[in-house]
Structures are given as C-alpha cells and as structure tokens.
Write a protein that binds this DNA or RNA. Sequence first.
DNA 1: GTCGTTGCAAAGCGTTTGCAACTAT
DNA 2: ATAGTTGCAAACGCTTTGCAACGAC
Lengths: 147, 147
Amino acid sequence: MTSASDSVLELLRSRGLRMTPQRRAIITEIMTAEGHISPTAIAQRVQKRVPGVNPSTVYRTLGVLEDLGVLAHAHLESGPEYHRRSDSQHVHLTCSRCGAEDSLSMNEAERLEQLIVRHHGFSPDLTHFAISGLCAQCQKKERRLSS
Amino acid sequence: MTSASDSVLELLRSRGLRMTPQRRAIITEIMTAEGHISPTAIAQRVQKRVPGVNPSTVYRTLGVLEDLGVLAHAHLESGPEYHRRSDSQHVHLTCSRCGAEDSLSMNEAERLEQLIVRHHGFSPDLTHFAISGLCAQCQKKERRLSS
DNA sequence: GTCGTTGCAAAGCGTTTGCAACTAT
DNA sequence: ATAGTTGCAAACGCTTTGCAACGAC
C-alpha cells in the first residue's frame, strides 16, 4: 500500500507531475478500496480523511491516474467505477433483477474472449463493461412468475 | 411500421393508456430507426416532425414503452441507447481506440451465454452492455506502436 | 521562481419531477 | 367527466471548465 503509493509517486515525477496531499489521500483511498469504487464515493471518503478536498480535484486526479495506466474504469449499471489496473482481472456479472454482483475469473473470461477474437478478429476486453443478466435465484423466481 | 404502431396502440389501450400525437411521433421514429438510438437523438428527430414535443415527454414515453416490453435499452460507451425489443438480437462490439462498431450474431452470442450459464448459473444478457475492445485494424496499430 | 495543482463557482449535460393545463377516451 | 398525458420550469446528479491563488519542486 505504501509501496504502491511510492511507485505512483515515481511515475508522477517521471512525467513532471507532482505529489500533493490531496493526491496522496485519493491514491491511498483507491489502493485500499476493495474492488471498484465510484468517483462520488471516492470524493466522500477522501473528504473524511482530508476535509476540503474538492470533487473536481478527485475527477482530475482520476483522469491523471488513468492516463498513467495506474487506474482503469468500468461501466456498471450504476455508472462508472474505478479500480487499480493491476486487478482489473475480473468480469462483472450484475443481476438485473436483484442487483446481485458476481464475477467471472480471468480464466473463464479469456476463454470467452478467445472465442470472439477467433470468429471476429475483434479483441474484447470483457472487464470494461459489466455483463447484465439473471442470477441463479432470480431465474427460478422468473420461471415461477411466468408459469 | 403502421402495423407496429397499431399493435403498440392496442397494448396501450389494454392497460388503460392513451395514444397521443406525441407518442405516435416517438413510436414512428423508433420503429423506423436503424438499430439503436439515444433519447436525445429521438427528441431531436421528433422535434423536426412535430415541433413542440418536450424532451421530458420523450423520456416518459420511452419509460412506458420499455415497461410494456416494446423497447429495451443498452449501454454503449456513449451512453444509453434504445431499440425495438424485437430486434435486440445482437451484441455490440465497440472499438475503444477508433470507435468502430461491429456486432455479434445471436448464434455466436448464445454460445458465449451458454458457457457462462454452465459454469456460473448466471444467465447473461449480452445485449444489455456493449463489449469494448480493439477491432482488427487497431490491434495491428497497437502492435506497431508497442514494438 | 516555475509551473503544475487546487478550490471555487459556474456551467454543462442528460435526466427527472411537480404541477397546472390539456385531451384521449 | 375521468383519468392519463403534456409542457414548462425547476431541480437533479454527475462531471467539466476557467481562473486566480497556492504550493511542490
């Protein structure tokens, strides 16, 4: 976590960018967050640690970190979510009925990606958009309703 | 097209809802649109035919039609897009580099869906979110850059 | 001292909502 | 006449922007 911040620091420096208290707080927040987190949520959490950090600073920092390749964002039903690029390694499955979230391992995802690339020449990144559908429980409920 | 509007009319009636000139215009626009179309675009096009139609009416109508099962929406990189539910039958592939759009046939999509449902019990709807990635051309360009 | 960064306030954009007037039925 | 529907204007939530003050280097 500290080491993660440090390597980001180096990256920033190498591009003539600076490490400020605000950036440090934002980076810490994301590095300790589990999975993905929305810009708004980051703004709120950072506020608690370092009062006075403006949302626009959060957005600008997220942009910088994404350009540097430290972060990436994905689109879930609720909107954009950021995560460390180093663990983008899962595909979001979100149930459109109950909102439950599950995920595909990268192994499984890669098999799917290979199928697509083989037949289309298109090389998909299944982590960028979520996959919507019905979880096992809700499938049963739907069957009950329709019968 | 006329028959499509007519069947929607019946659906509305059967639920105690009404067919107004505004709705007729919106329905016509979507029924003649190719593939998918954004709420904003619908609003603009409808404006040209029937000046004075308010965007909020468009949003409300889209909601009604989606509840009735006539329409569905998908999430592309540019935001939500509506389409006739009857031809939701393709998966959007969008190139994150050049923006090119391609699509997967439902045959291909179903194979993928089966793979997921088999291993996860989760029944995906691959039409709801686009799939991001690199088109064949952009893959080559990326390779050139990184070498 | 330089130049990247921040906060602020304002504006942007797409979307939603309350309400009174309207109109399809 | 009875609801459902509309336009309007306002508010919404998220995000972006211009700019002057600030602060990391």
